[in-house]
């Protein structure tokens, strides 16, 4: 079994966030939670994170803006968006901005888990590719 990914959950609903993190940790996920987009960016700056699960409807910095900023500071970090039905347009916009996928609330825990694993896998593959490229480059120079 692969090592469980490090995941950051971003949601303004604290109750939801706490329970979700507890359940994720129970499933061996290295889960963290923050209550806003700004805090998510702070967290990412100091912690290596594979996947961000992002609620698009948040007060303050909204999901799309947060996504855009995440992609700026940590382009390899994959983002899964959680939406309500009415914000499908937002979901589409998010996909265009490079989100990995979107899910609708209330979300099935297993579904979310699979999506997170997929996202983490994608990230790992990409990182490996980059590493290979880096190795090639350094060896060329050497």
């Amino acid at each position: 079994m692969t090592q469980m990914p490090t995941v950051l959950f971003v949601d303004d609903e604290e109750d939801y966030l706490n329970t979700l993190i507890k359940r994720m940790r129970k499933r061996q996920v290295n889960a963290f939670g923050v209550g806003s987009g700004e805090k998510a960016l702070e967290h990412l700056a100091s912690h290596a994170t594979d996947v961000v699960v992002l609620d698009v409807r948040m007060p303050g910095m909204d999901g799309i803006e947060t996504l855009r900023r995440i992609k700026e500071v940590a382009p390899l970090t994959e983002v899964i968006m959680l939406t309500g039905h009415a914000s499908l347009e937002v979901a589409r916009e998010g996909m265009e901005l490079g989100a990995f996928d979107y899910l609708m609330k209330p979300v099935d825990i297993d579904e979310l888990l699979y999506k997170m694993e997929d996202a983490a896998q994608k990230k790992n593959i990409q990182e490996e590719k980059i590493k290979t490229l880096d190795d090639l480059l350094t060896s060329d120079i050497a």
Binding site: E13, D15, Y16, T19, R23, G84, A86, K105, P106, I109
Partner: peptide, 17 residues
């Protein structure tokens, strides 16, 4: 609908827990 969605999500999540 949206407002109801959130509490329902919490309830379902707690049940899951």
């Amino acid at each position: 609908a949206h407002e109801i969605n959130n509490p329902v999500a919490i309830m379902v999540e707690e049940a899951g827990w």
